[in-house]
């Protein structure tokens, strides 16, 4: 089996649409358009983008919480149509870690009940095996065993994220989709969780899809990075190349905008720059209105992904050299 753990082909998601009773077309939003990428075993693919770029929609489709409109997601060589059962069917292969870990824990269940759920429903373990597995999980995420009988509201954000991580790991998945796992945490705790994630990846030989809006965090954990803008991948490549030598003007703008010690405030961009209206997307490149390099071609036709080096591609007619 040489199939990559996760590969995505021409994935699309449209919200809304259809017709009303009177036959009028309802407005629709293309949240994810024509996404194609794959993740290698043991790799961390970072996905960066601003709000509204479709990164959470993508994550929810990857784990089966949202059905795609078209396209296919292949997990360990199994295509979408072969996994008709929804998350119950492939929860043993791919799991999801939520941004707001506290709200992902049922306030009326103890930590033990929360951790047992995937063991019972995905693996069908008996009580004794479950107890051993839970002890193992708590140890993996550095939590004390006496936490098991407490309720979620008794935990801080960092601890809750560890519990969320333990739950995701419970069914021994090969792939974790991490949706902004540290953006709700303080920096000192954020570093603890990021380090734990990288340790777990090595020990358990996991493959990560790491979604974040924070470029520095993504760079610190990722092998490769995909930059999303307005529902499309605009640049994909090795993490070190994407941020140091960006090809797409949007990636360039992103990395220059990130506030950083020792760099003056960015004042280049015109104040008018806003995301296009998702209900009435412009023809051509969605970034054209904000782009200093845009010309008539950009405003009329959507650019395809272009290979720049073996591992670096960008969807731009006028890439930065």
């Amino acid at each position: 089996m040489n199939a990559p753990p996760l590969s995505v082909m021409n994935l699309e998601k449209t919200f809304g649409g259809g017709r009303t009773l009177l036959g009028q077309v309802k407005p629709s939003v293309h949240a994810v358009q024509d996404m194609t990428f794959s993740v290698e075993p043991g790799e961390t693919l970072g996905i960066v983008g601003e709000s509204g770029c479709g990164k959470s929609t993508l994550a929810r489709m990857l784990v089966g919480l949202l059905p795609p409109t078209s396209g296919d997601i292949e997990i360990e060589g199994t295509t979408m149509s072969e996994r008709a059962g929804g998350p119950a069917d492939f929860g043993r292969q791919i799991q999801y870690v939520f941004q707001d870990s506290l709200s992902s824990l049922n306030p009326r269940k103890t930590i033990r009940q929360i951790l047992e759920a995937p063991l019972i429903h995905l693996l069908g373990m008996d009580a004794a095996t479950r107890r051993a597995r839970i002890a193992e999980l708590l140890d993996a995420v550095n939590l004390r065993p006496e936490f098991l009988n407490r309720f979620p509201h008794e935990f801080s954000g960092g601890q809750a994220q560890r519990i969320g991580l333990a739950r995701a790991l419970a069914a021994s998945p090969r792939i974790l989709v991490l949706d902004e796992p540290v953006s709700a945490l303080d920096v000192s705790v954020q570093a603890q969780i990021l380090n734990l994630l990288s340790e777990l990846r090595k020990v358990l030989n996991l493959t990560y899809v790491f979604i974040s809006h924070d470029l520095a965090v993504v760079e610190a954990v990722s092998d490769r990075v995909a930059v999303l803008y307005f529902g499309r991948i605009v640049e994909l490549g090795r993490a070190e190349c994407v941020f140091s030598t960006p090809k797409h003007p949007y990636t360039d703008l992103l990395s220059r905008s990130a506030p950083s010690v020792g760099r003056p405030l960015l004042r280049t961009e015109a104040a008018a720059s806003e995301l296009p209206d998702p209900l009435h997307p412009p023809p051509g490149c969605a970034f054209a209105a904000r782009c200093p390099r845009a010309d008539d071609l950009c405003r009329s036709a959507t650019p395809e992904m272009n290979q720049h080096t073996e591992t670096h591609e960008a969807a731009c007619y006028h890439p930065i050299d």
């Binding site: 999801y96 709200s103 759920a117 995937p118 995701a168 069914a171």
Partner: peptide
Amino acid sequence: FVDAAKLAG
């Protein structure tokens, strides 16, 4: 947490 329950099978 309802999404999480779906993911837990």
